[in-house]
Amino acid sequence: MTVVLPILIGLAYAVLMSLIPEPHRRRFNAIMVGGAGAAYLSGGGLGGWEFPFTALVAYCAFRGLESWTFIGIAWLLHTGWDILHHLKGSPIIPFAGDSSFGCAVCDPVIALWCFWGGPSLISLVRTWITRPHTTDAVSPASPPG
């Protein structure tokens, strides 16, 4: 459950973000990852290193206003920061000891969705459900003639 729940949270995040139309979805996600970059500032336990990390993620978030790739990079940077906090710092949620580990599992799920271009998962599922499915592996050949 320590791994499954964070993966489900990452997927739920992508599904909920799918409710926001583009280009607002990308911009909103840039703001979200910018905020995530500052999550440890008030007591993450890595001292002054919290500030340059926050600045780096803020830069990626700014670039993410126009680029899903930069948003994905910022989420992966946050993943690394979560791992450091799990091993050496303080958890992201003070009363949940493994919360930084969970965040380190969740964030790459979100990053993959971002690298995919942050598509609406709801629209993808609707398209998949409504498109005609065939059971034939090979399309039939045209009749001889």
Rank of each mutant, 00 (worst) to 15 (best):
L19H: 03
I20L: 09
P21A: 12
E22K: 05
E22F: 05
P23G: 04
H24N: 09
H24A: 14
H24D: 05
H24L: 12
R25C: 09
R25L: 08
R26Q: 07
F28M: 15
F28V: 13
F28P: 03
N29R: 01
A30Y: 07
A30Q: 09
I31D: 00
I31V: 15
M32Y: 09
V33C: 06
V33L: 04
V33Y: 00
G34K: 03
G34R: 04
G35P: 04
G35A: 12
A36F: 11
A36V: 14
G37P: 11
G37A: 10
A38L: 10
A38V: 05
A39W: 06
A39T: 08
Y40P: 02
Y40A: 14
Y40E: 11
L41E: 07
L41A: 08
L41V: 03
G43H: 01
G44V: 03
G45Q: 10
G45L: 08
L46Q: 07
L46S: 07
G47D: 13
G48A: 14
W49D: 00
W49S: 07
E50A: 05
E50Y: 00
F51N: 12
F51L: 15
P52G: 10
P52V: 06
P52I: 05
F53E: 09
T54L: 13
A55C: 10
A55V: 08
A55G: 13
A55K: 01
L56G: 13
V57I: 02
V57R: 06
A58D: 04
C60I: 03
C60T: 08
C60A: 14
C60N: 11
A61G: 12
R63Y: 06
G64H: 03
E66C: 13
S67R: 02
S67L: 08
S67N: 10
W68K: 00
T69C: 14
T69K: 15
T69W: 12
T69V: 14
T69G: 15
F70A: 15
F70K: 09
G72E: 00
G72P: 06
I73Q: 12
A74H: 06
A74N: 09
A74M: 08
W75M: 14
W75D: 12
W75N: 14
W75C: 14
L76K: 12
L76T: 04
L77E: 11
L77M: 14
L77A: 11
T79R: 08
G80K: 04
G80T: 02
G80W: 01
G80H: 05
G80P: 08
W81C: 08
W81E: 14
W81G: 09
W81I: 03
W81H: 11
W81V: 02
D82A: 15
D82R: 02
D82Q: 10
D82L: 12
D82H: 07
D82M: 13
I83S: 08
L84K: 08
H86F: 13
H86A: 15
H86K: 07
H86E: 13
L87C: 06
L87T: 07
G89H: 04
G89M: 04
I92K: 01
I92S: 03
P94M: 05
P94C: 00
P94A: 09
P94I: 04
P94E: 11
P94Y: 03
F95V: 09
A96R: 02
A96S: 05
A96I: 07
A96W: 05
G97P: 07
D98I: 00
D98Q: 06
S99I: 00
S100C: 02
F101W: 02
F101G: 05
G102S: 12
C103L: 09
C103I: 01
C103Q: 07
C103D: 11
A104L: 02
